[in-house]
Design a protein around this nucleic acid. Structure first.
Length: 275
DNA sequence: AGCCCATCCTGTCCGC
DNA sequence: TGCGGACAGGATGGGC
């Protein structure tokens, strides 16, 4: 669910409403989040009274920075949600953390059915270090020379797995990698290094086009993605290949979309339009 | 180096 | 209608 466009959508929504607000209370509601804290973690009660300075995204990670140098590093993984809710609405068993603000009625909830996600209470420098050691450049700001260089350097990897590797380019997941490769006309099982300069250039441009359009439509709601206000995204209506196995290609209207396991994930492509 | 697999966890869907 | 198994958008670590 949450890949770069979905995380960006959540971050934009939260940023406009929460930046500058003072924390009244921050609590974990289930023990597993506490158990996932790294060794140098702060405690939730350390955030009381702190002003939320900024909310940022890096790859699929969400970063909250507070005054005084403490922060939160959040990853939604498969089923995580971060949204504002009326405190009167009861939180269900999948809601694992809650944050309330001074002079602002809605509360921020972290909900995650599969419990793969995390909320780490860390100081800013620790977050910065963790994020930058785990993630490659942002796909919307990486330049063509660096992109081409990375393609050449990791040319033995298949392009699908290449796009999914967060250390190469950060933020692309299974849905967008398939949509990007369809738009670029490149089969997902091609070794990255086998792409011509022109093909790599097409992939590079498709990354920007697909991600930008998806952000415009507030992400894809394939199963349960919702933005910071609980609204669904609309990019799923523009998916060309993802989850369309056996259906006719929307471009050539002839071939049927195929499904193949690549890099351990279901990959969808058109055998005619993608070479 | 890079692939495949299992793993963390819960819900859903499909076939019998 | 119930039940077991496969599968799901992420990321990691082990074995080959």
């Amino acid at each position: 669910m949450p890949e770069l466009p979905e995380v960006e959508t959540v971050v934009r929504g939260l940023r406009s409403t929460l930046e500058g607000k003072k924390i009244r209370q921050f609590v974990f509601l289930s023990p597993h989040l506490q158990q996932k804290q790294p060794a140098m973690a702060l405690r939730p009660q350390d955030y009381r009274g702190k002003r939320l300075r900024e909310i940022r995204r890096r790859g699929k990670m969400i970063i909250f920075n507070f005054e005084g140098g403490c922060g939160l590093l959040i990853h939604l993984k498969m089923t995580g949600q971060l949204y504002l809710a009326d405190p009167k609405q009861p939180a269900d068993k999948h809601t694992h953390a809650r944050m309330t603000f001074a002079g602002f009625r809605p509360e921020l909830r972290f909900r995650d059915i599969r419990k793969f996600g995390f909320v780490s209470c860390l100081r800013e420098p620790d977050i910065w270090q963790k994020v930058n050691s785990a993630l490659g450049p942002e796909p919307l700001s990486v330049g063509w020379p660096e992109f081409w260089d990375l393609i050449k350097k990791h040319g033995k990897k298949r392009i699908k797995g290449w796009l999914l590797d967060q250390k190469l380019v950060a933020g692309i997941g299974n849905i967008y990698s398939d949509e990007i490769l369809f738009r670029a006309g490149v089969r997902p099982d091609r070794p990255a290094g086998s792409l011509s300069r022109a093909e790599a250039r097409k992939v590079f441009r498709s990354i920007r086009a697909v991600l930008r359009r998806a952000i415009e439509l507030k992400g894809s709601s394939v199963s349960d993605f919702v933005d910071s206000t609980g609204q669904k995204g609309r990019f799923q209506t523009e998916h060309r290949v993802y989850d369309r196995e056996g259906q006719p290609c929307r471009r050539c209207r002839l071939a049927l979309i195929q499904r193949k396991k690549i890099a351990g994930r279901s990959s969808f492509f058109c055998p005619t339009c993608q070479k």
